[in-house]
Design a protein around this nucleic acid. Sequence first.
DNA 1: TTACAATTGAAAATGATTGTCAAGTTATCA
DNA 2: TGATAACTTGACAATCATTTTCAATTGTAA
Lengths: 144, 144
Amino acid sequence: MGSVRDSFREYLSDHGLKTTRQREIILDEFLSSPSHLSAEELYLRLRSNHPNIGYATVYRTMKLLADSGIASERHFGDRQTRYEPNIGEEHHYHLICNGCGKIIEFENGAIEQLLLDVAGEHQFTLSHQRLELYGMCPDCKARK
Amino acid sequence: MGSVRDSFREYLSDHGLKTTRQREIILDEFLSSPSHLSAEELYLRLRSNHPNIGYATVYRTMKLLADSGIASERHFGDRQTRYEPNIGEEHHYHLICNGCGKIIEFENGAIEQLLLDVAGEHQFTLSHQRLELYGMCPDCKARK
DNA sequence: TTACAATTGAAAATGATTGTCAAGTTATCA
DNA sequence: TGATAACTTGACAATCATTTTCAATTGTAA
């Protein structure tokens, strides 16, 4: 099970970094929270049970999680950096409601193939990709 | 020609806003600059010929250009908001080199159609979309 | 356990962007 | 044209997210 935790520990020790209580707590909270939280939102969630964990520590740890490949940084419309866990290797994309901020994830092999083709035409070696569709979800349209 | 300038004037008057010398100068500079500049970069470019145009005015004007549909806001890896002129109505996407920062624009009707399909499946009405591929360009790969 | 390097929390610093406000401009309409 | 009201401007302060600093604390390799 706790393989994510193990791989984080491994990443840390491989890089001469230390496994600390705070880092493990933050990782656990991240994994058991909804996706696409910002560092601040995570900090607020942690505060009730761990009021002694500092703001900067959450920021620093999220960056570590991104560096270690456990999480990915995302930037949607707003100003904050959001994080999502990296589950498997499939790419997925986002559909974001301008009205309520709801984020729907989707995958699409045909799109992915076309993207690879485009990259190939330009002789690019892709590292990552970002695809976001913004619009109004049915609920928000109805609410008007 | 100056139809972009005309449509900006029209947007302003339709919204009870005023056509000012500064706004016209900023629009001209924006249109005659490379794409994907940030407000700050535009401010720096303007400074030599128009040292009296303030920082905040450039920010405010760029926002107006985005609101009026003349420009689009873009967020790439870095922290700054960048602007690009909206040419016609076609959607285009970006291929960005992690090595040198080069940005290549491309269009692809097949991808666009698939995106519309996805939005339709979720009953979303799309307002805009964002698609970015990050990777290494051939030059940067060779340089290694 | 020791000893040293990494980490923490709190607070200050940073960088991009936005707000404030007095003074200056623009557009309208008499 | 000129008065007037409303919008803008520039300078600078404020804000927001994030990063840095630093003294005190805590992992960890030996």
